[in-house]
Amino acid sequence: MTTRTLYLLCSAAPPVFEVAGVVAEAQRRGWDVCLGLTPTAADWLEDSLSGLTALTGHPVRSRYKRPGDSDVWPKADAILVAPATFNTVNAWALGLTDRFVVGVVAEAIGKEIPMAVMPCVNSAYARHRALDRSLQELRDMGVEVLYGESGFEPNAPGEKRPYPWALALDSVDRLVG
């Protein structure tokens, strides 16, 4: 089996604490996983970063590399942005690339790398008009959006429920074939 490379890019939302199991499941599906985190997600997972690096076999990244530094990740065959917070979704749609995760996916649109995004927002954030506009903008740029009936459905603020990771992994499997 040929190994495919998946960039799994995560924002700081509660499902990020499940990322080790998601990496392991993606690896079982034949993916070589490179894990990228927003700065806050990296802070939340600080005690787990060395274990996640060992699990993936690649450095966990949350910052841009310096000019002249070599790439430490292989080229992506697909990208999954999950969980994607309100901030990450809106920054990506607007092209605000001050954070590594958003910069990777903004550039990946131009590189035509297959991508899926699954937001993780509560129903209060979901009522903000910017979210729908941003998700539509990402759809218009060719990103598969897993939201609403076809993906993550917003929960009430403070409500805990399972995040549909399998649906997200199924999506990138399908995108690459």
Rank of each mutant, 00 (worst) to 15 (best):
A26F: 10
H58N: 03
P14Y: 13
V172P: 06
K160Q: 07
M1H: 14
S11H: 00
S48W: 01
A106G: 03
A12K: 14
A24K: 13
L45K: 08
A116D: 11
A82Y: 09
V19H: 12
R133W: 11
G177C: 08
E137C: 13
A84R: 00
P83D: 06
G57C: 09
G30K: 08
Y147S: 05
R66P: 01
K65S: 13
P15M: 14
P154H: 06
A26R: 05
R174F: 07
G158S: 10
G30I: 09
R99W: 03
V176M: 08
G103S: 13
G68M: 09
H128D: 15
L37F: 07
R99V: 09
A124F: 06
Y125C: 09
W31D: 04
H128Q: 14
R61K: 11
D132S: 15
I79M: 13
S123R: 08
Y163T: 06
Q27W: 06
S171M: 08
L96D: 05
V89T: 14
T56S: 11
E159D: 15
R127I: 00
R4G: 10
G103D: 13
C10Y: 02
P39H: 02
L138A: 15
L8G: 07
Y163I: 10
Q136L: 10
D47R: 10
V16Q: 14
R133H: 09
Y163G: 07
A12S: 15
E159P: 10
H58S: 06
P15R: 12
L167H: 03
G158Y: 04
A24M: 06
A26L: 14
A93Q: 00
A12C: 10
G158P: 00
R61F: 01
R28S: 14
V33S: 12
L35V: 02
S150G: 01
L175T: 03
A130D: 12
D170P: 04
L49T: 01
A168P: 06
G30D: 10
P15C: 10
G158N: 07
Q136V: 00
M115S: 13
A130W: 06
A126M: 09
F17T: 12
A12Y: 04
D71L: 03
E107C: 02
R28H: 06
N87R: 11
Y64K: 08
R139H: 02
A20S: 13
T2Y: 04
E144N: 04
R174C: 11
N122W: 07
S62V: 01
L9Q: 12
N155G: 05
N155F: 07
V72H: 01
K160V: 15
V33H: 12
S171C: 15
F152D: 01
G142F: 00
T2W: 01
S50C: 04
F100D: 03
E18Y: 03
T40L: 12
D170Q: 08
L131K: 00
V121I: 15
G57R: 09
Y163K: 12
T3Q: 14
Y125R: 09
A166W: 07
T88I: 05
N90T: 01
V102Q: 08
W73E: 01
S123F: 04
